[in-house]
Amino acid sequence: MSLEFLLAAALISSTPLAYAALGELVIERAGIVNLGVEGTMLIGAVAGFIGAQITGSAWAGVLAALVCGALFGGAFAMLTITARLDQVVAGLAFTVLGRGLSSYIGAGFVGVPPRAVIHKLNLGVLGHVPVLGPVIFGQDPLVLGAILLPVLLSLYLRFTRMGLVLMALGETPEVVDSLGIPVILLRYAYVISGSALMGVGGAYLSLAYIPSWIENITAGRGWIAIALVIFGTWRPLWVFGGAVLFGLVDAVRFRVQLDNYPVDPHFLNMLPYLATLLVLALVARSRAHGRLGGPAALGAAYDRERR
């Protein structure tokens, strides 16, 4: 197995994680914890697959996943932002809901061969560039999107006024509110768009990675996405880096299984969680000094007249 092949496989494995983790990052930056990533991804995966089955177009499927992820996120936003339900409980409820709903809706599609899948791009000359050609330019558009997204997000956070507002939203919503910027509206917007990204991450599984619908297709990737946000200390490029790292582990794992390597794959699968625990410990220790911690107002519903 060549290095190029390994890197390409790593990028493919990291794509669903990257979409979901960056979606969660946007939401957490806005001050909301959404533990329902797994459920939202499943909704996206099933919506994407069914959308593609009905229309015969994989991209219509991706659009369906985007819209359904957004709708699911909108419901979550209503419960946590407007009704101010506890975010942890609501997130877990949405994990259960997404799992149940996707299994229920997708029950008739299990094992059905896909009518349309997402194909790899053919960029002609670019595909023949050494290393970059097969690793990047030979991928499908969603993989390229996953590479582009963290860059755009990073620029957005660092160099635009709206990005500044987003960071303030998670740090000190009361400041944002006192400046006359609509806290509630923006939090809705970010929860919905972040959930839409999770939906796309799910659709990548059912339309490109697997590609078909099986129950619980995400197999814990939603939880890894949450872990990645912490692992990347709430910074888009770091989160993406983490996703690629775990994608690489995933790619190596296949190799291990093939070659009967001495490390059991179960232990490799534990790595994301163990690494996150390590980062949690390091971040917690350094929080007083460094700036590695999460948004300060994370997890708290905003209530203007609470005193």
């Binding site: 419960l79 009704a83 339900l85 409980v89 609501a90 409820a93 949405f94 259960v96 809901l97 799992r99 149940g100 709903l101 996707s102 299994s103 229920y104 029950a107």
Partner: peptide
């Protein structure tokens, strides 16, 4: 599909809360 049970579990919690 048996998943209706799981759906109802989540919906019940959300509705009551």
């Amino acid at each position: 599909p048996s998943a209706i049970g799981t759906v109802l579990q989540a919906v019940l919690l959300v509705c009551i809360l």
